[in-house]
């Protein structure tokens, strides 16, 4: 049983990160100038969500800022993945799900509105899953899949996107010689980065990550976390994680969920060092969950 001291955790987290000072400093500046600089991209208000008769989310109100990484933490079954999947309406694929009350707005547009094109929404809100799930196709085809769906056919354009996405996902150097080999032949960490590259390729605004590192070893995890840091400059990231160190290392803001309710939502530093709610404190210090 590890009772983590938030401070020491923070120092540990900065070890694998290449720019430890920058990470902390940006965090600090974001905290200081939060009022004028941050732009609210996702605005969730009073959201209730149901699987059939059982209610999974209770009155969630949460704002996600643009070009920031927001972590959703909490014990298993607390509704954090459900909330994430609400953001690109992946819950539509599950029979019997419905939104009881409340709104989710992205750039002030209600995404559950009748006139919303779900396909368009999912192009704008990409997703990376818990278990890496490259298609049983080549690396190249995996990345170009989304673009081909949108009707992009010119080879030069596709080539360019493949290279850019793979570079962004820090995978280019490892796979550039075997772009036409199967994506399933990569290692677990590489597969997950391929999935990230695939999500980036369609140039979404928001990338949702559902426990992206839970199936990866520590080295692969470090690479993905590093990647999340870099992606923040261009994308808004919402990440669900079980790993509190990970939330501390790579997110700017953290939301703590418990039993389908949002318990506390604040700057990551605040959540881990000075939580306002005793439940949050108990969870981040490892006393339950």
């Amino acid at each position: 049983m590890v009772i983590a001291d938030p401070l020491s955790m923070d120092t540990r987290s900065s070890v694998p990160t290449p720019r430890p000072t920058m990470g902390t400093s940006s965090l600090a500046t974001a905290g200081d100038s939060s009022a004028p600089a941050s732009e609210i991209l996702i605005d969730i208000e009073h959201l209730d969500f149901f699987y059939g008769a059982s209610q999974a989310l209770h009155d969630i109100t949460l704002q996600v800022e643009a070009k920031k990484a927001t972590a959703l933490i909490g014990p298993s079954g607390c509704g954090k993945s459900t909330l994430l999947r609400c953001l690109n309406r992946m819950n539509d694929l599950i029979d019997g799900t419905r939104i009881g009350r409340g709104t989710i707005k992205i750039r002030d547009v209600e995404i559950n509105g009748r006139d919303i094109d779900v396909i368009e929404l999912r192009k704008r809100v990409g997703m990376v899953f818990q278990k890496s799930n490259p298609f049983p196709k080549s690396i190249y085809e995996n990345i170009t899949y989304g673009l081909r769906l949108q009707g992009v056919k010119t080879k030069a354009q596709l080539d360019e996107v493949v290279e850019r996405s793979l570079r962004a996902a820090a995978l280019w150097d490892e796979v550039k010689d075997r772009l036409h080999a199967s994506g399933l032949g990569l290692s677990g960490g590489q597969q997950q980065r391929l999935c990230i590259a695939r999500a980036i390729a369609v140039e979404p605004e928001i990338i949702l990550m559902d426990e992206p590192c839970s199936a990866l070893d520590p080295i692969a995890t470090a690479k993905v976390e590093e990647l999340i840091h870099e992606l923040k400059t261009n994308f808004t990231i919402v990440i669900v994680t079980h790993n509190m160190q990970q939330a501390a290392r790579c997110s700017d803001r953290t939301a703590f969920f418990y039993m389908g309710r949002l318990v506390e939502y604040a700057e990551t530093r605040t959540i881990f060092m000075n939580p306002g709610n005793p439940q949050t404190e108990a969870y981040v210090s490892g006393r339950f969950g």
């Binding site: 690109n88 992946m90 694929l93 396909i119 368009e120 999912r122 192009k123 990409g126 997703m127 899953f129 278990k131 799930n133 490259p134 298609f135 049983p136 196709k137 899949y145 989304g146 769906l149 949108q150 999935c195 695939r198 999500a199 369609v202």
Partner: peptide
Amino acid sequence: VPRAFKEASFALGANRLQTIIQIIVPA
């Protein structure tokens, strides 16, 4: 066919027909 393939395809903005023809059936 793993459900994950279907989800990944939908998450990339594919519709049902595209997912079936390009992912599910080939797999």
